[in-house]
Amino acid sequence: MYRFLTQNAVAIVFLLLVAAFAAASLYGSSLLPPASYEPLGSAAFPKALGLITLGLVALQAISLIRNHSGTESPMDPESVTRSFSWKKYRKPALMLATMVLYLAAMSYAGVDFRISTSVFLCLAMCLLARPDSPKKVLLIAGSSIVLAVVLDLVFKHLFYIDI
């Protein structure tokens, strides 16, 4: 059981997510008024797609379990050779966190676009490129500021995007 969960962790997470959205779609469609302009109404598509999606999720779940219990090795060689580990998700998670912080800084804290963008660019590039000398860090910081200022000029002052 444990092996099944770890080997198919991502697939299971995805199926649960889809099932949750399908359930929400079904629930939401049950709140809609009956059709008035034509026979289908606004609830028909959400309901049908919710049901189809749930059905497909069930089929996929069955095939996952089958593949696992079968004596033959599963079709996905990667999940066999490499068992589940948190380590490889560290960098994407950090990157996502920086993006969320960047968004929060602009929307909730109202930080100026130039400041939030140069800080974000600098942090994200340092995270990804792993600069090994202070000189490189400075270079990254400098180019982040320049890029942020240029973007500000182009998009806020030339195109009037109100970001």
């Binding site: 929400a24 809609l32 497909l56």
Partner: peptide, 29 residues
């Protein structure tokens, strides 16, 4: 099967908002 799940999921998520026919708002909770 994976392609179909993906497609059904995408189709489903395109629906919230203004219903193109009746103009009423749906699935926005």
């Amino acid at each position: 099967l994976a392609g179909l799940i993906s497609a059904a999921f995408g189709a489903m998520l395109s629906l919230p908002g203004i219903d193109p026919i009746s103009g009423s708002i749906r699935l926005t909770f």
